[in-house]
Design a binder for these strands. Structure first.
Lengths: 245, 245
DNA sequence: ATATAAACTTGATCTTGGTCAAATATAAAT
DNA sequence: ATTTATATTTGACCAAGATCAAGTTTATAT
């Protein structure tokens, strides 16, 4: 198995020699479903590249609730930002969502390469910058948007990703619920509600969007037609009442 | 007025010549209370260093609610992470919290210096890494912790910062409420409740902590005495009932 | 195929924090 | 020192989601 790590944005600026160096300190591992990679608080000497399956990053509250911070897809790296800290500690736990494969890299070794390549530094800063932006957006969603809004936004994103009105959910419902910071029951009820409003049809893991416009307005994204009206969306008005009872 | 920008972590690795170069593209401005610096969506060509007062970074929801993402203190920079993006756009709005002074710097110019100094790159990556960590913690707080927990944590942090059981709130109550993602009414009620439980005493803007241990357990931080017990905190049990009614 | 476990759904009820409105308190301005 | 504006507090009520307890479906393993 010979993977070119340059497919990952983070490594894309490396020359052959540098790739060779990085690979020397690397280690590939195969994980079973829900096998743990590291836990919150562990010393962080290595960072990772997902090459198969999905890795979920999460935190657990004192009463056992699990909040999924991110689900890392193949081709993406994670935990690389920690290598610039004095006493790097993983701020989240990581485990496989289904069977998965990851390559891990030694921080120290990579820092050495970094210290010789401004270009790679710039890549990393770009990556971190994007991640920063994503987290700010996430905080926004969590505090300013309702559960329905978040779920609709996720469905819409998935729909556009696939390019079809008919698609399959990108993970188990319970997992998606945790990713959106809501309980599985709430997730289920919102879907049920959207169905009853003829906004979509659901059949186990498959979703078919029937009324894209309404879905879009519920997701607080402007419709494809024209720009935002004065009151950007009807959720708070009476035209669309989405009460859960 | 001659400020050495090297007090800011971000610039600390610059030599005299580099500082001179950066300063050439800089611009100092004085802001009145609640004067705007930039808004969400503006093109981001410059980043900032606060040298006096406070700058609040916030986002506004479609129904007008304001969420304060951060309050930047003197000596700190902000919006520097954007310079690594292709089409940099501020993801938040910024305005002065009371009268303030900031220096702004040109992204392009700074990137040029960066491209000549690995050391400065490393500083930046360190800064970004910390910020990333902070945001993850914030998401954790918002989704896994109650309003009471968040407020107690803030009080405790402030107490430790000042080193006194008796201290003054770091901003107006309404501002702190927004920072903690709660309404002023809720903020007020929680303080009132903590008072009635003899955990603290409040007099307008001043707080005196009476029962540090309980405060600490409410904030979900382990007490100074010993390590965490099996059930780390009593909030969910009956020993401390903190109902708001 | 059938048993067994895990994931999902549904209903009833409860809690946290939000909303609205009125009352005070604090600060700023004349 | 008053007035006036702004910030905070308090009360009554409400709503979005959470919780708990059954069901029901789907997946996995024999």
């Amino acid at each position: 198995m010979n993977i070119d790590i340059r497919m990952a944005h983070l490594f894309s600026a490396l020359n052959d020699d540098q790739v060779r160096q990085v690979m020397e300190s690397s280690h590939t591992s195969t994980l079973k479903d829900s096998e743990s990679l590291f836990e919150t608080g562990d010393e962080a000497n290595r960072f990772f590249l997902v090459i198969g399956g999905q890795i979920k990053l999460f935190r657990v509250s004192s009463n056992g609730d699990q909040k999924i911070i991110d689900i890392i897809q193949p081709g993406n790296t994670f935990a690389e930002a920690l290598m610039f800290m004095e006493h790097p500690i993983y701020p989240v736990s990581a485990e496989a969502l289904g069977p998965a494969r990851v390559i891990s890299f030694d921080n120290r070794r990579f820092l050495q390469i970094l210290s010789e390549s401004i270009e790679v530094c710039f890549r990393i800063m770009g990556t971190m910058s994007q991640r920063l932006r994503g987290l700010v957006k996430e905080i926004d969603d969590l505090t300013l948007q309702s559960a329905t809004t978040r779920l609709c936004a996720l469905l819409l994103r998935r729909m556009e990703e696939v390019g079809q009105m008919h698609f399959t959910l990108p993970a188990a419902k319970g997992v998606l619920a945790a990713r959106l910071s809501m309980k599985p029951e709430t997730f289920s009820r919102i879907l049920q509600n959207l169905s009853s409003k003829k906004i979509l049809k659901t059949k186990s893991n498959e979703i078919e969007v029937l009324d894209e416009d309404t879905l879009r307005s519920l997701a607080h994204l402007e419709s494809i037609y024209g720009l935002e009206p004065e009151k950007p969306c009807a959720l708070n008005g009476q035209s669309i009442s989405l009460d859960l009872n």
